[in-house]
Design a protein around this nucleic acid. Structure first.
Lengths: 350, 350
DNA sequence: CTGAAAGCGCTTACAG
DNA sequence: CTGAAAGCGCTTACAG
């Protein structure tokens, strides 16, 4: 009973593994890190020994020797939903690699300068950029000048010189429209997002292309302007719904505006999805908070956090060894999540 | 230019400080940790030297020696808003103390057993419990049996045997009602939360007490049942608003239901706050997503994360030294955040 | 109250 | 391909 916890696991050290495998600690280290060449035979023996002892590297000890990676995470738009999902993934990766994640929020339009100063003063070796900072040219420029590696997260405009991890906004929106069409919708309206944001542009482009692909018209009256906020979705929805002939579905450029559409429809005594299908983009908690829940496009945000940490770590390692840094763009799979707000046979599922 | 980053800071080691202060490394260590007795004079010299060199402890090295703390964070209700704010605070504290935070989500009703097993297998030394897990007797019992320290976060029913960090739900709700009354409201309705949740009970109790304190009546028709979800807030709001004489304000037990009230009011052509004041509790992102933004009670969630890590670390240290563990309950300040949804002179601020 | 020695678990050169 | 030695920066006993 006593010492139960300590015995649980993680007892074995590199030396225990070395002894059991009949090799030197050095060799075990090499196998663990999989970096230098090791005889296949030896590798096998070490691996078996490690597995048998349930060996786990002591990341703290490794960090003490190597100098642990300090990864800065810069965020501005306090989208709690995005941040928490991202943090879960990023922390997970940091935890297992012994890196430290330093959060820095940048406030206001010009706040990014101070924020980056803070991170640099804190000694970070690389910085993760979340939207919309990841698309800011001045930010990327400053980081390049400081020679600090960066990874752009969920950017829609990946730069040639910066690593990035994202989904394909264009394809995501395309799939969503196809989904609506497959449900039998022919008259689909769209609410645009902030025209300055690249994802908004891509999603709109995809909407038009998907409609054209299906041979469907998009009269100007079927497109409304929005700014990504719930509030901006209110008048946009009114404009689309107060026409003599209503569209059968509205695709809003994000969940906030889709939620606003639902609210307006409700106020007009329209039942969603019976009288109107509604869908959004992002799969924020709002999508499952409002009623009916929103059909939307889901991004694997947690996985993006993991990958972002991997990418930045790799870049930092390259920099330390004075190797040329490798810019890598990773595209992760999105998926359309059908929920009640666009359900065809809604009585059945209600 | 070269090596710019490395020079930035964090260069100085314990030995540099020792040399400059003319003492041994040991003494510096003692001063840094502030634990054992050190001559005031010596302490001063060391502190000055440390400041001059901008010395920072290398947490990795310390962890290598001491064995770093592994802190498990158990969460179930995926309230992204709460989680992200909490993580920011908790990570911050972990970062500066060199602890590792291990996240574990528990799915389903019985998932907590597996989740705790996972954490224990992962070798955590203590566990942070977020709501609603923090109020689960079986969970607390299992942890006690395993002899793993725990800290309950945002619990409304702090246990005598478990450390906790929280705000005073009762006082928070009391303040909110007083706020509404100070705005001139006399006929205030309430939407209850899930009756199984202790915070819901406390907030309702506070509502009744505050009304009584002001000599105001609360007829049964002014109280509606809710379950904390947006969806449950819809019929509750309808019930309260479809009476011949409407209340002038509705206080919902959380933000989700308050948002539902706004939606229903809007559907009935009632303007918030002109025709009806609405307020919630928690200050989730939803409060600033919907329009008008919701007046609500804010919890310092980030700070709760910091404090939770402090409390659990202290407990783990006690356990390691086989000292009796100190149960500590920390009450943090909440505050009422007035926003447009309850603004008296709403034209002025719109 | 203060210090000299040894070691946390791992990795970086340097040899073979 | 493999190993012996030294050291990362700090702290734990053990002395004085």
């Amino acid at each position: 009973m006593i010492e139960k916890q300590r015995v649980a696991q993680g007892d074995a050290t590199l030396y225990d593994v070395a002894r059991l495998a009949g090799v030197s600690a050095m060799t075990v280290s090499r196998v663990i890190n999989g970096t230098k060449r090791v005889n296949d035979d030896t590798r096998e023996r070490v691996a078996t020994a490690a597995a048998q002892l349930k060996y786990e590297v002591n990341v703290a000890a490794r960090a003490a020797r190597v100098g642990s990676l300090r990864i800065g995470l810069l965020y501005s738009n306090p989208s709690a939903a995005f941040l928490s999902a991202f943090l879960v993934g990023a922390m997970d990766q940091c935890s297992s690699s012994g890196a430290r994640l330093i959060l820095e929020k940048c406030e206001g339009q010009r706040g990014w300068r101070d924020a980056i100063d803070n991170l640099v003063a804190g000694g970070v070796n690389g910085i993760l950029l979340t939207p919309p900072l990841c698309d800011s040219l001045p930010v990327l420029k400053l980081l390049a000048e400081l020679d600090i590696p960066a990874v752009a997260v969920a950017t829609a405009r990946p730069s040639k010189s910066t690593s990035a991890v994202r989904i394909d906004d264009y394809e995501g929106a395309l799939s969503m429209v196809r989904h609506l069409i497959s449900l039998g919708h022919r008259d689909i309206a769209f609410i645009k997002g902030d025209p300055k944001h690249t994802p908004a542009q891509l999603r709109y482009r995809a909407f038009l292309d998907a409609m054209e692909e299906a041979g469907l018209e998009v009269p100007p009256a079927r497109v409304a302007e929005g700014m990504f906020t719930y509030r901006s979705g209110l008048p946009a929805a009114r404009r689309l719904l107060e026409q003599s002939e209503r569209p059968s579905a509205i695709f809003a450029c994000n969940d906030d505006m889709a939620a606003a559409v639902v609210a307006v429809a409700h106020g007009m005594r329209l039942e969603v999805p019976r009288d109107l299908a509604v869908c959004g983009f992002d799969d924020t908690p709002l999508a499952t908070t409002v009623w009916p829940n929103l059909t939307t496009v889901h991004q694997p945000i947690g996985e993006m956090g993991q990958v972002a940490v991997e990418l930045i770590s790799e870049q930092i390692r390259c920099q330390r060894k004075r190797l040329p840094s490798v810019v890598e763009h990773r595209l992760l799979p999105y998926n359309v999540v059908p929920r009640l707000s666009s359900t065809r046979d809604w009585k059945a599922s209600a």
